[in-house]
């Protein structure tokens, strides 16, 4: 900048305020959407909901409308496998590749707050995750038993809530580590899937169980069962989302670029 060489009179000029909106920056959002939906990642994003719908259609033909079947499938496949996977892909994909190939410096060099960047990417990740997992869950629920016992709505809302938490967690992972995808998958599948099934205590530390608590509240009957109470679930979800987002913004402020393999 030439401001430093033009004498002491000009340096008193205040730092220009950060331009653009504080929470959602449209250009950053557009770029993030492009990165998420424009590459091979999109194939996986489309394939997962499609697979869910194919399975659901097959099961409907095989078994007819049945509440416990609906519960099994929506919990066993949609909420415990599809939602975390879509969350990992969208959450880490929103920022990971940019940090990986160093393109993030061009974004960081712009007068946009780091917090705004993180919030925008989080909103985009949430949007993509909800679109590719909560909406298919809703459709699947309607196909399976036409929203009997309010199951379709309950699981769709649980999926949406889980999406928000997963997006925040995996976005944080994307900022913190270069191996975000692996760490995220290990958390989502090994911790929540395997450890959660064997060690009862691990279940209280699981996004899936927190969102199940929400589903339990919304669904009629006692088909849906969660390891935690609704209050614990909601508080934990909010806490994790906010903390992960805050920490991600903080880490992005002090980001060090490592260019090795």
């Amino acid at each position: 900048m030439s401001a430093t060489t033009t004498g002491p009179g000009r340096t008193a000029q205040p730092q220009p305020p950060s331009t653009g909106p504080a929470i959602y920056h449209p250009t950053v959002a557009r770029l993030t959407y492009g990165a998420l939906l424009g590459r091979r990642r999109a194939l996986l994003l489309f394939a997962l909901p499609l697979l869910l719908l194919v399975i659901v259609a097959a099961v409907r033909l095989l078994a007819g409308a049945d509440d416990s079947t609906t519960d099994d499938l929506l919990q066993g496949f949609a909420l415990s496998a599809m939602v975390p996977l879509v969350g990992v892909i969208a959450g880490t994909g929103a920022i990971g590749p940019e940090i990986d190939d160093g393109a993030i410096v061009y974004l960081l060099a712009k007068p946009i707050r780091r917090r705004t960047i993180i919030l925008t990417k989080l909103l985009v990740a949430i949007g993509v995750t909800v679109a590719f997992s909560a909406v298919p869950t809703l459709i699947a629920g309607y196909v399976l038993n036409a929203n009997g016992q309010n199951l379709a709505v309950a699981y769709a809302i649980a999926a949406a809530v889980a999406c928000i938490a997963y997006a925040a967690i995996f976005l944080l992972l994307g900022v913190v580590t270069r191996h975000a995808v692996v760490v995220g998958l290990v958390y989502a599948l090994v911790w929540e899937g395997v450890v959660g099934n064997v060690v009862p205590g691990a279940r209280t530390l699981s996004v899936q169980q927190w969102s199940l608590a929400v589903a339990q509240k919304i669904a009629h009957g006692d088909l849906v069962d969660s390891a935690v109470s609704l209050n614990v679930g909601v508080v934990a979800l909010v806490l994790v989302t906010v903390a992960a987002t805050w920490f991600a913004a903080r880490k992005l402020s002090t980001l060090k670029l490592a260019v090795d393999e």
């Binding site: 078994a63 416990s68 079947t69």
Partner: peptide, 9 residues
């Protein structure tokens, strides 16, 4: 999960 459904049926 589909096997679970089939077992239930």
């Amino acid at each position: 999960s589909v096997q679970g459904v089939a077992a239930a049926q």
